[in-house]
């Protein structure tokens, strides 16, 4: 998702690429208005910080050159227009309009003014632009190939004509996506898609729970890692070994009590809703419905030796994958913590 910096450049009409600009913003040695002014200078944009007395803010709001950054106790807003008693502004890549007096009451009088001209442009813009297009092409090629491979696997495994199998496939993919976003949240990695989903039930709920004690099992591994392992292996087993479906369904049933615990914990203990977590619980229940409607659950009983073999092998796969994801997650978490410590020490 675009940062404050790239949004400001867009508002100023300065040619830039989001990837490079956001990276430069995140890597600023001084994470302050001073750092931002220095960064803008690299783009050929002159900037000046001002402070406005309370009595003068109403007049200043109508006369300051647009766009400008207005500071509030909860962050900066990019003021893009002031007209008809309203202020239009951008915050976290979203546009809002509010009555001028309401904005003035929240503004602390500090602002960053900027001046761009026809020579203002991102350094090495053309090279970055080509690279950005190439990244987009790579992403789309990957998506198309994944879809084609999944379709091929469904055909090769003989599940092509079973609607419940397609539904299960879709749910497993959704589960992987949701779990991946939860892992990102737990690592403090900012994701626009995750923020968009999280804001549905409660703004900030996912962040709060993803970093709480309840997000992990006795501090040994995170529930987001469990989810990622579960849905990944379920997807692979469905596509490569469809004979394991009854064992998959049995394991899904064993997961259902966890969904009840999760919902009760959010409602009564944490008193905050994590939209991503709720979606994962819903996905588990929808998987159960899919297995039930597809006649898979009816094939669990009676237990046969091959069922138990499949069950044991699947359990081993889940655990091995979970341990692998956990090791990777821990290494990544330590790496990110080291990076943050280095940045703090340098500023």
């Amino acid at each position: 998702m675009a940062s404050l910096f790239s949004d400001f450049l867009t508002a100023l009409g300065v040619k830039h690429t989001e990837g490079y600009s956001d990276r430069k913003f995140a890597e600023m040695p001084f994470q302050s208005m001073f750092g931002l002014a220095n960064l803008l200078k690299q783009y050929g944009v002159a900037a000046a910080g001002i402070s406005v007395d309370k009595e003068s803010r109403a007049e200043a709001m109508t006369r300051l050159p647009l766009p400008f950054l207005a500071d509030t106790p909860d962050g900066f807003a990019i003021v893009t227009n002031v007209a008809d008693g309203n202020v239009s502004y951008i915050t976290q890549h979203k546009q809002f309009r509010v009555a001028t007096d309401k904005f003035l009451a929240a503004w602390n009088g500090i602002a960053l003014l900027a001046s761009a001209d026809e020579n203002s442009v991102e350094p090495f813009y053309f090279r970055h632009h080509v690279a950005e297009i190439a990244e987009g092409v790579k992403r789309w090629v990957l998506r198309v190939l994944v879809v084609l491979l999944l379709g091929f696997a469904m055909w090769a495994s003989g599940l092509w004509s079973h609607w419940a199998a397609w539904f299960t496939l879709l749910l497993d993919c959704i589960g992987i996506w949701l779990s991946w976003m939860l892992v990102q949240k737990s690592l403090g990695i900012h994701s626009g898609a995750a923020d968009a989903v999280c804001s549905v039930l409660e703004e900030g709920g996912c962040d709060e729970l993803a970093r709480s004690e309840a997000s992990s099992f006795m501090g040994i591994f995170k529930w987001s890692e469990v989810g990622l392992a579960y849905f990944s292996i379920s997807l692979l087993a469905l596509l490569l070994f469809p004979s394991t479906l009854p064992a998959l369904a049995a394991i899904n049933i064993l997961c259902l009590p966890y969904t009840v615990w999760s919902i009760l914990y959010q409602k009564f203990k944490a008193k905050v809703w994590c939209t991503l977590c709720v979606c994962v619980q819903a996905t588990l229940w929808l998987l159960f419905v899919s297995y039930l409607a597809g006649g898979v659950i009816a094939r669990i009983l009676p237990f046969t030796p091959s069922f138990w073999i499949n069950f044991a092998v699947l359990a081993a796969c889940y655990i091995a994958t979970l341990l692998g994801i956990n090791a990777l997650d821990t290494a990544l978490s330590n790496h990110l913590k080291t990076d943050n410590d280095d940045t703090t020490n340098n500023t």
Binding site: M33, F34, G49, I50, S51, V52, K54, D74, G75, G204
Partner: peptide, 20 residues
């Protein structure tokens, strides 16, 4: 009522990491 901020003043105005 407008005062231009010095580089030191500007360095005291930090970004909020909470993405509110």
């Amino acid at each position: 009522g407008i005062t231009k901020l010095s580089p030191l003043d500007m360095n005291g105005v930090h970004f909020n990491k909470r993405h509110t």
